[in-house]
């Protein structure tokens, strides 16, 4: 039996990987993927707390969080397509019309 702290540690590591990905990558699609890693890390936390405490609230939240993540990615990809049509690139360091 693996104790809950290991799951929490894993999810913290995953979350950090996601944050680092968002901060360092330039490709908009990769950034969205990093956000997905962050959200999945959260899901892991919720599920492991829920299993530890033996109530289902955490798992119910995971379902909602999955749906929201899917919606967010759908909108995100649509906006990336709009950007690509305008700029012919998805490199966010080249999308710099608005600054200061």
């Amino acid at each position: 039996m693996i104790i809950t702290s290991w799951y929490l540690a894993l999810s913290a590591v995953l979350f950090s990987i996601g944050v680092i990905g968002v901060l360092t990558r330039k490709n908009a699609i990769v950034i969205l993927m990093s956000v997905e890693i962050m959200l999945n890390a959260v899901n892991l936390t919720l599920v492991s707390f829920s299993a530890e405490m033996g109530d289902v609230h955490g798992q119910i939240i995971v379902f909602f969080s999955l749906c929201v993540a899917a919606a967010e990615v759908a909108v995100g990809l649509a906006i990336i397509i709009a950007i690509y049509r305008n700029n012919l690139t998805v490199d966010i360091s080249k999308i710099n019309l608005l600054r200061w």
Binding site: G18, V35, E72, G76, I83, N86, L98
Partner: peptide, 18 residues
């Protein structure tokens, strides 16, 4: 400008809501 504002919004928004 509109598309650019939008993509900046979703990047910041997705990370901070995560």
């Amino acid at each position: 400008k509109s598309a650019e504002g939008s993509i900046k919004y979703i990047m910041y928004g997705a990370v901070s809501s995560g």
